[in-house]
Amino acid sequence: MEQKNILFVINPISGGKKKTAFNSKVLEVLDLKKFKPTFQQTSRAGHAYELGKMAVEEQYDAVVAVGGDGTINELGAALIGSNIPLGIIPEGSGNGLALYLGIPMNETAAIKRLNRFETAGVDCGIVNGKPFFNIAGLGFDASVSDRFANDSIRGPIGYLRSAINVISNYKPCKYELTIDGQHYEREAFMISVANSPQYGNNAYIAPNASVNDGLLDVCIVHKFPLYILPMMVFHLFNRSADQSEYVEIIPGRDILIKRVDDGPIHVDGEPIALAGNLHIQVQPNALNIIC
């Protein structure tokens, strides 16, 4: 049986986890009769995308993201339009997409899962030409992502610290939305456009979202009094955000968001600067995932 060439792309700083022993763990756990592994480490933003494109050119049989949703985003964007599937070893701060797909959080178990080499197609969202596979957002969560990206502390603790620092001064914004031709005007704390249900760490913003239904869930979190915050957090972790009177969820395929003020947005947890209006569409069955 001919070995499949598989490229592991390792983000050495994702999730604040050391990965110095990762290569040897793969050689120990991966079925080396089936697979021939190659390892590359990322060194900067955008590097995973470049390595993904290289894998397409060199016709690898699979690429594996060893990192979080940001690493998955870059590699997935590079693999769209190819037949090369993406594997995931969850090593991020939130691991939202991996949790939804049922990929083990344990490193050894996740590597073992690759041996089955079973794949499934997933949708992706496109915001102003930029793909996302989990969640894109603007407002409060984008401001938190922007601050977290510049924080020296990684992992859930760093993210929580960023959220606490941002919320004390954050003001809701006004938006105009057009979702599949329907017009809405909202003052919102934040707007998340979800392909999968959760940000990560089992915080569910869109409990009924699915990566293979050809839809995106537009989650509008309305302005709410600060004393409600503990209940909002409860809803997130109880998978009941859609039951809150302050949360409105509208599914759609073609979404236009006009905002009064420019600000950061996040794409799979990574902040990017996009000025002006946001045009978001869904691309069904855009990527194969090893799950």
Results as ranks from 00 to 15, higher is better:
Ala77Met: 05
Ala62Arg: 00
Asn201Lys: 07
Ile13Arg: 08
Phe133Val: 02
Ala142Lys: 03
Asn202Leu: 10
Tyr170Ser: 04
Ile88Phe: 08
Leu32Lys: 07
Asp151His: 11
Gly181Tyr: 09
Asp217Thr: 00
Gly102Pro: 11
Pro156Glu: 01
Asn208Ile: 00
Leu7Thr: 08
Lys174Ser: 15
Asn288Pro: 12
Phe237Pro: 12
Asn212Glu: 11
Asn106Phe: 09
Leu236Pro: 15
Tyr159Arg: 04
Ala21Val: 12
Ile290His: 01
Ala163Leu: 02
Glu176Arg: 15
Val260Ile: 05
Val63Arg: 00
Val267Cys: 14
Asn5Phe: 00
Met231Phe: 10
Asp217His: 09
Pro271Asp: 02
Gln3Glu: 12
Gln59Asn: 14
Leu138Met: 14
Glu2Thr: 05
Thr108Trp: 04
Ser24Cys: 13
Gly200Pro: 14
Asp261Ala: 10
Ile290Asn: 01
Asp217Gly: 03
Ala203Ser: 15
Asn201Pro: 15
Lys34Trp: 06
Asn165Met: 06
Arg161Phe: 08
Ile255Val: 10
Val127Ile: 15
Gly263Ile: 00
Tyr60Gln: 09
Ala21Lys: 13
Asn285Ser: 14
Phe234Cys: 03
Leu160Met: 15
Ser43Gln: 10
Leu51Ser: 01
Gln283His: 10
Pro225Tyr: 03
Arg147Glu: 12
Cys291Met: 11
Pro264Phe: 00
Met190Asn: 13
Leu75Ala: 07
Thr178Phe: 09
Glu270Gln: 11
Leu27Gln: 14
Val56Cys: 12
Val26Phe: 04
Val26Ile: 13
Gln3Gly: 08
Ile72Cys: 05
Arg239Met: 02
Ile289His: 04
Ser162Val: 07
Ser162Pro: 14
Ile257Met: 08
Met190Trp: 00
Cys219Trp: 03
Asn150Ile: 02
Asn150Gly: 12
Val193Asp: 08
Ile13Gln: 06
Gly46Glu: 07
Pro131His: 10
Lys19Gly: 06
Met105Gln: 15
Gln182Phe: 05
Leu138Trp: 09
Arg253His: 12
Pro85Glu: 04
Gly252Thr: 02
Ala62Tyr: 00
Gly121Ile: 00
Ile167Tyr: 05
Gly129Lys: 02
Ile103Trp: 10
Leu97Met: 09
Phe22Lys: 00
Tyr60Asn: 06
Glu185Gly: 02
Pro284Trp: 01
Arg113Leu: 11
Asp254Trp: 02
Ile179Thr: 05
Ile249Trp: 04
Met231Pro: 00
Val221Thr: 07
Asn11Thr: 00
Asp151Tyr: 10
Lys4Pro: 07
Ala98Val: 13
Leu32Cys: 11
Leu51Tyr: 06
Tyr199Leu: 14
Asn23Gly: 07
Phe35Glu: 06
Glu248Asp: 14
Leu79Trp: 01
